[in-house]
Simulated scan of single mutants.
Amino acid sequence: MPENIPGLKENSVNCYTAENAVEYYKQLSDFKGGRIVITVGLPHKCPMIPLEVTFAMHDFIKDRGLLDKTEFYYTYPIGRVHSLENVAKWAAPEFDAKGIKYETLFNMKEVDGKNACVRSEEGGEVKYDLLVAVPPHKGQEVIEKNGLGENGWIPTNRNSLHMEGEHGKNVIVLGDTTNLPISKAGSTAHFEAETAAENVAAVIKMGRPVKAYDGKVFCFIEAGKDRATYAMFNYQNPPQPKAPTGAVHAFKMAYNKLYWATARGLL
């Protein structure tokens, strides 16, 4: 929902639709130097996206021979560079090593396209030559319009995954549709689906569920064009990202192909 921030839609690029991604690539390819500002709205899908787009752009600009003419400036809404504390502790030194500047406690208020600057609710102002946005997201409009959940997310029991309230006894909620305070990511839906499938089968066979969802999430984190790490966590255990390697990046790329080949029935 870039339109939720005055001026953001008209003056920034992002990667959240095919059309937007193509425009993003065009503008980054035509970029000749200056300041690239990465600005982040909350909530947003996939917690690692702000870091990944920053690292990927750094390597893209480096390959084009423009690193000495480019300044990367990353902003984030809370008091560290990522919402997950251990991920932030890993990412900040990576930024420092690459010369990526950052400002925390920066909540977007508006974008002034005429003066090429983004202003924050805290009173800050950052000039840009290219503004790359992670826009704020919301849930589905149909959910909100029908009174099923505030901001388009359905109230969901964190362990059983049943819809909260009197009508939720036989309703299981998965993925981005839930209001659970965990990542809006593909792996979240995957692990929730495992719990849901076992419980549906168990209820049919013996009249009661047998498994509770523990909040499990797994996210690869691309640290550039050829290095990656990962974060695996649940309700009780925070992520512990390791130093990024080429091997993890290669595994991620292979996993991506295997996943879609399986989904298409080729494997």
Rank of each mutant, 00 (worst) to 15 (best):
M1Q: 08
M1G: 10
E3D: 08
I5T: 09
G7F: 06
G7Q: 05
G7V: 07
L8F: 06
N11D: 09
N11M: 08
N14L: 06
A18L: 15
N20V: 00
A21F: 14
A21T: 15
Y25H: 14
K26T: 13
K32S: 14
K32Y: 00
G34T: 03
I36N: 01
I38E: 00
I38M: 07
G41D: 02
L42E: 14
P43W: 09
P43N: 09
P47T: 11
P47G: 15
M48P: 08
M48D: 02
P50I: 10
E52K: 01
T54D: 04
A56L: 15
F60M: 10
F60Q: 08
F60P: 00
K62A: 06
R64E: 11
K69N: 03
T70N: 02
F72H: 07
T75N: 07
P77D: 07
G79H: 05
G79L: 00
G79E: 07
N86H: 11
A88P: 04
K89E: 13
A91I: 04
F95V: 03
K101D: 09
K114C: 06
E121G: 00
E122V: 06
E122M: 09
G124P: 06
G124Y: 14
E125Y: 00
V126Y: 06
K127W: 09
P135H: 08
E141M: 14
V142G: 00
V142Y: 05
E144I: 03
N146I: 12
G152Y: 05
G152K: 03
P155F: 11
N157W: 02
R158Y: 02
G168N: 12
G168C: 12
V171L: 11
I172K: 08
G175A: 12
D176E: 13
L180W: 01
I182W: 00
S187N: 02
F191G: 01
F191Q: 02
E192K: 01
E194G: 10
A196L: 03
A196C: 07
A197F: 08
A197K: 04
A197I: 13
A201Y: 02
A202L: 03
M206N: 14
R208V: 10
P209R: 05
V210I: 12
K216P: 00
F218Y: 11
F218P: 01
C219M: 05
C219Q: 05
I221C: 05
A223V: 10
G224Y: 06
K225I: 05
D226Q: 05
R227N: 10
A228C: 07
A231T: 07
Y235H: 03
P238Y: 01
P239W: 03
A243K: 11
G246I: 06
A247P: 00
H249N: 13
A250M: 09
A250I: 00
Y255C: 11
Y255W: 14
N256S: 14
N256G: 12
Y259A: 11
Y259S: 12
W260L: 11
A263N: 08
A263H: 08
G265A: 09
L266N: 09
L266Y: 11
L267E: 13
